[in-house]
Amino acid sequence: MTTTRRTEPFRYSLYPPIEASLEILSIDGQPLPCKPAQIDLIDISKSGCRVRTELNLHASSHDLRILLHVRLSDEMRTFPGEIRWQKELEPSSQHYGLRLELNPEEKEKLNIELRGMAAARRIIVK
């Protein structure tokens, strides 16, 4: 039997990326009334995701609480979380790593939805 050292959940890559929106709830604990910004969802797992946008949020120097709004299969879903990292991987595009804050029931529901999308070959397991 082979053992694995993998501690991260599977990442599901989206080709092409799915259009979504990101709403900033607070910066450094200060509430922020903000309209959702359009983003591209690059990959997702039950604990986090990577998104791309033209916005530079200076996430390395701020604590950013967010809501991710995305339609994965049938219904619009909203996931609370925080921005964990930011990198400029393409000219004029910022990539962000988001940690999703889901309870075990929400994680299982998301996992089932992602497995269904993978079975229908709408997303790729990495």
Rank of each mutant, 00 (worst) to 15 (best):
V51N: 02
I24H: 05
E90R: 14
R52V: 14
E105F: 15
A37R: 14
A120M: 04
H58I: 04
E113S: 10
F10C: 05
W85G: 04
S73Y: 00
E54Y: 12
E113R: 02
G48F: 04
S93C: 11
R65A: 13
L68T: 09
Y12P: 04
S73I: 00
P17E: 08
I123Y: 00
K46Q: 10
H69I: 13
K46Y: 06
Q38Y: 02
R99P: 00
E8I: 03
L57S: 02
S21T: 12
D63W: 13
L114K: 00
I66H: 01
T7W: 02
L102E: 06
L110P: 01
L68P: 04
L67Y: 07
L72G: 00
R50N: 09
T7C: 06
E101P: 00
A37F: 09
N56A: 15
S21L: 05
R122K: 15
S60R: 14
R121S: 12
K126V: 09
F79W: 10
P80I: 08
R5P: 07
L102R: 09
L67N: 13
L67I: 10
L114V: 01
S93Y: 15
S26H: 05
G116C: 07
P31T: 10
R121A: 09
Y96T: 03
I44P: 04
Q94C: 10
L64S: 03
T53S: 15
L22C: 11
I66C: 06
G48R: 04
L72H: 01
P91A: 04
L102D: 06
P80N: 11
S45D: 05
H58G: 13
Y12C: 09
A37Q: 15
V51Y: 08
T2K: 14
I44K: 04
S73F: 00
Q86I: 08
L72C: 01
L14N: 05
Q94E: 11
L14S: 03
L22E: 04
T2S: 11
W85Y: 15
S61K: 15
G29I: 06
K87Y: 02
A20K: 00
P16T: 08
E106I: 11
Q30K: 12
L102W: 04
E23H: 10
L100P: 05
E108G: 03
A118T: 01
M117Y: 07
V70I: 11
T3I: 14
P31N: 10
T7R: 15
I18P: 04
G116L: 12
I124H: 14
L22Y: 05
I44E: 02
I42T: 07
C49R: 01
H69P: 00
E19G: 09
I39E: 01
L64P: 09
L32W: 07
V51C: 05
Q38A: 15
I24L: 14
P33M: 07
P36R: 03
K107V: 06
L67Q: 13
R71W: 00
I42E: 03
G48Y: 06
H69W: 00
H69L: 10
E82C: 08
V125L: 12
S47F: 11
K109G: 06
A119D: 08
G116W: 06
L72D: 01
R77V: 08
P91R: 13
E8Q: 12
L64Y: 13
E75L: 07
L100N: 02
G116Y: 06
V51T: 13
R52N: 12
P33W: 08
E101S: 15
L64A: 03
D40I: 03
P80G: 11
R52Q: 15
R84C: 12
P36Y: 07
N56R: 07
Y12A: 11
E8P: 03
Y15P: 02
